[in-house]
C-alpha cells in the first residue's frame, strides 16, 4: 500500500522543495522505496536540490505525452537506489498536465512498488496546485513563522478541504529561529499552530547548512551534524508512525523550559 503525500504551502520560498527532497532522502535511508514527483512544471528545482540535474533525459510531460515510458523518466538517486525522481519539464508550463493525467501517473508509480510518493507542489493556487493535489491522499503544509506565509497556508488548508478533499493536513513550521522567538521578535511554533489549528508534524530550525547542502546538491537530512537535518529525519520517522518528541530547540524557547532542563541535569 503506497502513501501519496503532497507537500504544499501556497506561498513560494518557504521550503517546499527542500522539504520534499529531505523527507524523500530520509525516508529512503530508512529503507522505504520513495518516488519524488516534481509538479512545478516550468520552474523545475527539485533536481537541483538533489543534485540530479545533469541526468535528466525525459520528464513528467514526456511521460504524460507518451514520448517515453515512466521507467525511462525516473532518475534513480546516485546515493540511495531506493529514491527516485520524476523531474518536471522546464520548457513547458502548468497546462501541459491535467489532474486526470496526474492521477494516472501516480497510479503507475504505485504499480512500480513505491511505498511513498511525495509530490512537490508549485507555489500558488492555480492549475499547478490542482494538478499536484489531485492524486494525493495526504497533505503536508510547509510554512514559516511569518505573517504572509501563515496567511497563505491558511488559504491552502481551506482549499485542500474544500476542493481536493484532503482533510487533516499536517503542519511543518520551517525556518524557525529560536533566538528571535525567545526575544518575542517572531511568532512561536505554538502561535502558528494555534492560528492554523492543524496537527504539527515537525519544526525545522533555520540552518545555514540548508544553503551549503543545496549548493552541493546533497539534502541536509544526510548530514549527521546539521540541526535541520536531524529535524527532517525526525519528521520522516513521524510520517512512518513513530512517536518522536519535537527537537529540543523548543526546550530553549522559554524561561520555564530552561528551568526544567536545569532540573533534569542536576
Amino acid at each position: 500500500m503506497s502513501r501519496v503525500i503532497v507537500i504544499t504551502s501556497g506561498k513560494g520560498g518557504v521550503g517546499k522543495t527542500t522539504t520534499t527532497a529531505n523527507l524523500g532522502m530520509a525516508l529512503a535511508n530508512m529503507g522505504e522505496k520513495v518516488a519524488l514527483l516534481d509538479a512545478d512544471i516550468g520552474l523545475r528545482n527539485l533536481d537541483l536540490v538533489l543534485g540530479l540535474e545533469n541526468r535528466i533525459v525525459y520528464d513528467i510531460v514526456d511521460v504524460v505525452e507518451e514520448r517515453c515510458k515512466l521507467r525511462q523518466a525516473l532518475i534513480k538517486d546516485k546515493r540511495n537506489p531506493n529514491l527516485a525522481l520524476l523531474p518536471a519539464a522546464q520548457t513547458r508550463d502548468k497546462t501541459a498536465v491535467n489532474p486526470d493525467q496526474m492521477k494516472k501517473l501516480v497510479e503507475d508509480l504505485k504499480e512500480e512498488g513505491f511505498s511513498f510518493i511525495l509530490i512537490d507542489c508549485p507555489a500558488g493556487i492555480e492549475q499547478g496546485f490542482k494538478n499536484a493535489t489531485a492524486a494525493a491522499t495526504e497533505a503536508i503544509i510547509v510554512t514559516n513563522p511569518e505573517i504572509s506565509s501563515v496567511r497563505d497556508a491558511d488559504r491552502i488548508v481551506g482549499k485542500l478541504e474544500a476542493e481536493a478533499e484532503l482533510k487533516n493536513p499536517l503542519l511543518i513550521v520551517n525556518r524557525v529561529r529560536p533566538a528571535m522567538i525567545k526575544n518575542q521578535e517572531m511568532m512561536s511554533v505554538e502561535d502558528v499552530q494555534e492560528i492554523l489549528a492543524i496537527k504539527l508534524l515537525g519544526v525545522i530550525p533555520e540552518d545555514d547548512c540548508i544553503i551549503t547542502s543545496t549548493n552541493r546538491g546533497e539534502p541536509v537530512s544526510m548530514s549527521e551534524t546539521s540541526r535541520a537535518g536531524q529535524a527532517y529525519r525526525n519528521v520522516a520517522r513521524r510520517i512512518r508512525g513513530e512517536e518522536v518528541p519535537m527537537l529540543n530547540l523548543e526546550e530553549s524557547f522559554g524561561f520555564f523550559s530552561r528551568l526544567k532542563k536545569l532540573f533534569a541535569v542536576s
Binding site: I147, V150, R151, E185
Partner: peptide, 10 residues
C-alpha cells in the same frame, strides 16, 4: 513587541 503585533495582525 513585534511578535504580538504580528500575531494580532495575522
Amino acid at each position: 513587541n513585534s511578535r504580538s503585533v504580528v500575531k494580532n495582525r495575522l
